[in-house]
Write a protein that binds this DNA or RNA. Structure first.
Length: 279
DNA sequence: ACCCGTGTTCGCTG
DNA sequence: TCAGCGAACACGGG
């Protein structure tokens, strides 16, 4: 589930599992129509069959997959996967049970099946004719990817100057910080010691620069932790909360140890912060 | 039963 | 044009 680090791990997994493999057969659940919009599940599945995976990339929270023409022709197909809130790609060997809420399946030529699992159906799977990803509005609208290109503090400051809204809310704009979501926003603000309630336009250039560095540090740390011994998703049940403030309402602040982490609601989403450290 | 949720889009207002 | 805001989508877990 997806913010930049989770999506990056999902893309790395897909690369390891599918790069160079042919999709012998694809299936898509007819009941899960909204995932496959625009278009229909059946059309989606038919378009993938027989194609070989030649590239897997990530931009922001979007995973971009390139599929070559089945007959060696010059007509590639793009596949875009957005994981929504609960989307996940899972690998199953032949014989293993399918996961629940499997909405689409890619049967590869080595006997492996990749399942797209998504209980809440907020994710998207779409095909892109000619693999022309730059023509897709959701991709074209994204700014430079933080992990790929870094975060340009001057560009961020210019954009923030126009935004009266709380900085925490402004950070979720995918045109500004692609891949940043609700967790990274709280984590980045905590590391940068900035109050999430301040207007984005009120931040100084120095503060914006601090924030850019803090977000990037959070991204890299989360990826490094998730990659660990075996590439895994952080939020598996039973695993400990790996974040500094996210999901830690009422706990002692890990920096000052003199205040408790607060939870407030901004733009219909929870924000976690330390009222003593962040100003 | 009730509340919560790592996301996006749509429609409305100013 | 655009910034801002609330509703909607859908389902499982605590």
């Amino acid at each position: 589930m997806p913010e930049l680090p989770e999506v990056e791990i999902a893309a790395r997994n897909l690369r390891a599992w599918a790069l160079g493999r042919r999709i012998d057969l694809a299936e898509a659940e007819e009941q899960a129509k909204r995932i496959f919009r625009p278009g229909r599940p059946g059309t989606f599945a038919a378009a993938l069959a027989g194609r070989r995976v030649t590239e897997v990339r990530r931009v922001g929270k979007q995973i971009l997959v390139r599929l070559e023409d089945p007959s060696g022709g010059a007509r590639p197909l793009g596949l875009i996967s957005h994981l929504g809130m609960t989307g996940k790609w899972l690998r199953r060997d032949g014989g293993e049970d399918a996961p629940s809420h499997s909405r689409a399946r890619l049967h590869l030529d080595d006997g492996v099946t990749l399942h797209y699992r998504d209980p809440r159906l907020f994710g998207r799977l779409r095909t892109v004719p000619g693999a022309r990803f730059e023509d897709v509005p959701e991709v074209a609208a994204l700014g430079p990817d933080p992990l790929d290109k870094g975060i340009d503090p001057a560009r961020l400051a210019t954009a923030f100057a126009r935004r009266k809204t709380a900085v925490k809310v402004a950070m979720l704009d995918q045109a500004l910080l692609p891949g940043v979501g609700n967790i990274l926003a709280s984590e980045g603000l905590f590391r940068a010691r900035l109050d999430p309630r301040r207007s984005a336009s009120a931040l100084s250039r120095v503060e914006v620069k601090r924030l850019a560095e803090a977000v990037l540090a959070s991204v890299k740390e989360t990826i490094a932790r998730e990659e660990g011994p075996e590439v895994a998703y952080v939020e598996e049940p039973g695993t400990e909360n790996p974040f500094l403030v996210y999901g830690r309402e009422g706990e002692e602040c890990p920096r000052c140890r003199r205040e408790t982490i607060r939870r407030i609601v901004q733009g219909q989403r929870s924000t976690f912060f330390c009222p003593r450290c962040q100003e």
